[in-house]
Design a protein around this nucleic acid. Structure first.
Lengths: 156, 156
DNA sequence: GTCGCTGCAAAGTCTTTGCAGAGAG
DNA sequence: CTCTCTGCAAAGACTTTGCAGCGAC
């Protein structure tokens, strides 16, 4: 079968080391806030809104007293450097996830809003064919399937 | 070849008649503003932001003096009734297009922001297979390919 | 006439920015 | 020490809502 769930392929230590290297290269600073944001994104196996991420960090590290502005600033910085990627999903706003994983697409439940990731080789290949056929130089792509997840179908 | 551009398959008259029928069915009113919004969406072969749509209507029908709030209200109403669909594309906000056309996906130029539509049967079929394989009841889906369009490649 | 629709302006969201002090290198 | 980061609060962008008058039916 060509469809299956992705697995997290990097260790946190590696991710952190890469992050530090990036900061050094760009003469940016490694701060407590930045570390906790990266860590929280890594360990929450979810797609988080800036707001949700802020809540998680406030709960886990109340003494850090991280402001929402820092979350936004850090997420933008991480996105620019391809460490996270964002997914905007209808009216609900943007959600972020670590982007260092294998490429994957998303299946979004319209009932519980849970996002499931998947990879499909047929689709990956076909996308390249389509771009080529239109003389389009593909840089990236994203696909979302909307519907009702298994769990929600069972609970109704 | 299974990939090709879609063509606009409905005549404006038919669209308008359907729209009137819908309004009647829901006891909603057929107003000048609503007509112009539908018309503008139809004739501008583009994906429009609420703001852009507002501008177009102000230019073409200044005497109508349509307010931005009406544009938003009408677009929401049209989206609920599956007459238009929205596409949110990165930080740039939502864009709307008539949804009564055949289903299609989008190729978005990251340079000129132009959106090209395409339909691909392989992808359509594969999406159903993926959803089935995960016990997911598919309702809708969307796919975007990001890259540099032919025109922009030539101009650089 | 009735009741939904509209424009206006005010109120909400969500996100970004200016600033002065804190802190990493 | 220097120069970036941060929290705070204010400002912005975008969208929604309340209201009183207007207009479709």
């Amino acid at each position: 079968m060509s469809t299956n769930f992705t697995e997290r392929t990097i260790e946190y230590d590696k991710l952190l080391a890469d992050f530090k290297a990036l900061l050094k290269e760009k003469a940016l600073k490694f701060t407590n806030q930045r570390e906790k944001i990266l860590e929280t994104l890594y360990y929450s196996q979810e797609h988080l809104t800036p707001e949700a991420l802020h809540q998680l960090i406030k709960e886990k590290y109340p003494e850090l007293n991280a402001g929402i502005a820092t979350i936004y600033r850090t997420l933008s910085m991480l996105e620019e450097n391809d460490i996270v990627s964002s997914l905007s999903f209808g009216a609900q706003g943007k959600k972020y996830e670590l982007g260092a994983k294998d490429h994957h697409d998303h299946m979004i439940c319209t009932k519980c809003h849970e996002i499931t990731e998947f990879v499909d080789e047929v689709i990956e290949t076909q996308q390249h064919k389509i771009a080529d056929a239109h003389g389009f130089k593909m840089q990236d792509h994203s696909m979302q399937i909307y519907g009702i997840c298994k769990k929600c179908q069972e609970n109704s």
